[in-house]
Amino acid sequence: MLHFVIVAVLVALSTFGLGSYFASGALLPEAASQQSLVIDWLFGVHGWLVAFFFSLIVVFLLYSVIVFRRRPGEQGDGAYITGNHQLEIIWTLIPLAIVLWLAVIGASTLADVERRDPNALVVDVYAAQWSWTFEYENGAITTDLVLPVNQQVLLRLHSNDVIHSFYVPQFRVKQDVLPGGPEFTRELRITPTQEGEFKIQCAELCGQLHYDMLADVMVVSEAEYLVWLDQAAGDCEGTDEQCGQRWANQFGCLACHSLDGSVILAPSWLGIAGSEEELTDGSTVLVDAEYLHRSIVDPNAQIVAGFQPNIMPQDFEERMTEEQIQQVIAFILSLGE
């Protein structure tokens, strides 16, 4: 009997120590969304359960190994106990009850996490190897996600190549982004509660530069957001080269084409205009406006030697206006020798 009292005290102490550490939230990143508050509460519940069951088994195990160890010179076997059906039933039913309760609160927290606000702000998210683009309802297209604080945003997730996943640790939620058009468009709802800057990360392995598929999300006040949104939607008012640089950034070109001569997965744009490039079929081509246009709308037609086809998206003709394409070409030409 004394054995059980000692073990019970040790289990209680260990549970309390571990449980208060786990439930303190010290192990999780900052909570910056409505959803994260609900989820962190559930993490707290899990923390206590983990602490209790881990302590229960480990304390019993260590206690047995120490107290019931065979002493030097000791002979014979241990106590002849083959089992106990009552005990077995108890330790089947109690965990069963806990597990069912956990599933019930699991379902209710999920309902809270996915609660819909009919007035949610809608943003279309386009994921591609290896960039993020965001399109707002007023037509603004950006590479950073800017959100107003304390308002639910409905992200409609689209991919045009492989499966990606939208994940911001501080928001606690993630959703895979599927290719395949409207039928495969998935939604994610987030209500940011903290102003600040966080990272959007692709959480589903999507190929070579998966690790680098990041974007910034900035949560700002309502007023700041409105000002920003107006600016972002405005037509580009700079020179063709400036606008071209902006489109190149927005449409994800710069994920693979560097501006400093380094090779990521595609030819660098530095000094490419006006140069003679060798193609995979052995022929050479002069990089002029005509070639650049063809390379943007039909990237597989002429591949520069040493690079792979099928890496560059093939739908820029639909996604960009002709003016935007011309401005990007102007930008690339300006980087020539």
């Binding site: 088994i57 019993f60 195990l61 047995s64 190994v65 019931f68 106590a79 106990i81 330790w91």
Partner: peptide, 13 residues
Amino acid sequence: FSWVGTLWRGKIT
């Protein structure tokens, strides 16, 4: 639980 039950009051080496 069965493993813990087996360890309890054994002669453990």
